[in-house]
Amino acid sequence: MELVVYLAGQIHDDWREQLRKKAEERNLPITFKGPQENHERSDDIGERIKGRQPNQEFRDQAASEMNNLRTRVWMEKADVVIALFGEKYRQWNTAMDAAVAVQSGKPLILVRPEGLIHPLKELAQRAQVVVETPEQALDALAYVLE
């Protein structure tokens, strides 16, 4: 059995790459998908596909359309969603992706630091598993694959 796992969460560090490497080291049959990790490409994709936009608002909207399409396609194909909330950045996209996963019935592993227990309490109640590190999320997936 192979799992497709959607990695929702901030794109400002390499947590996804670290998780991929650890899964590979453990020979876990997991395919990871997620948002565009190249921030510049994510911001530019709307104009690259639809052409130059008249202002920043339309530029952001065009990029959001493309990024939302990507997210929806990969989340629908995913067996599990891991949503990582970090301390440093506002996590609007993570919250939205986690809510979509819950709404669509996708199993959700919520990764959140101790400092975010209170603000994420309702979402945590809807997740199948709540952990504090991506490595713990990987351990949960390894258990599923036993």
Rank of each mutant, 00 (worst) to 15 (best):
Q61S: 10
L120Y: 03
E40D: 15
A98K: 02
N55F: 07
A83M: 06
I117C: 00
K33L: 15
E2Q: 15
E146S: 13
S64N: 10
P35H: 15
I82E: 03
R59H: 10
A127I: 03
L3Y: 08
I30T: 08
S64Q: 10
S42H: 02
I45M: 07
N38I: 13
D60W: 00
A62W: 00
K77R: 09
K121I: 15
V80F: 05
N27Q: 15
I11N: 11
V4E: 11
V102Q: 03
Q91W: 01
E135W: 06
G105S: 06
Q128P: 00
V80H: 05
R41H: 03
E17Y: 07
I82K: 02
D97K: 09
D60M: 11
E47L: 06
K88R: 14
V144R: 10
T94F: 00
K50D: 07
L84S: 03
L145R: 06
F85D: 05
A62Q: 01
R26T: 09
P29Q: 10
A95K: 05
V129C: 02
H12E: 15
K22Y: 01
A101W: 01
A98P: 01
A98T: 04
K50W: 13
R72H: 02
E65L: 11
L141D: 07
A63K: 00
A62E: 05
D79T: 08
L141G: 05
